[in-house]
Amino acid sequence: MAETGPLRGVPSGSGGPSGPEPDALLHAVARGDERAFSALYDIVAPRVYGLIRRVLRDPAQAEEVAQEVLVEVWRTAARFDPQRGSATSWIFTIAHRRAVDRVRAEQAGADRVRRIAAASAETPFDEVVDQATAHLEQQQVRHCLKTLTDLQREAITLAYYGGHTYREVAELLGTGLPTVKTRMRDGLIRLRDCLGVSAA
């Protein structure tokens, strides 16, 4: 897939490429600026859509949820609080939450963990690592995921890309709940340090 321009949207402070920053664009969007929204769309939509599709798998559903999320960004832009994080983090948090809500609502019921286990057997957890392409950010994430222990990486990718709760992750990995909780947290801390992420 061809990229049409530099992929912006790296959290501010991490030395991203020039151009309007998502934070500034979102601020303009909050004042009803549709052109700013269009520019923000171009920066974040591929990741919003890609993330939702990875969690939901079905492209038609992913498009529907991505549309809801992007309209939600427009609608609630004034609620974004830069004190609490970057614009991209805010947007991807909304996207991920919506995708996870959808997947959990649809898979509600006693057989959920069984179905999840079957699905994850078909698609290995590190699919995402293998699918990484030439984007700088992807390479960086891929590199940093590799610095984690297997258990940290599996716990994080099953939860984030698989949309599973930590209880389900524990079941899938045959690990105790306290261990999974701990690995998610210390894995993310290691990832944070590797990516050089800081909160706003």
């Binding site: 994080g85 995402v128 944070r192 992420v197």
Partner: peptide
Amino acid sequence: ETTARLADASWE
């Protein structure tokens, strides 16, 4: 912020 970066790997 860190989990948001995981979205980078899902560019599509």
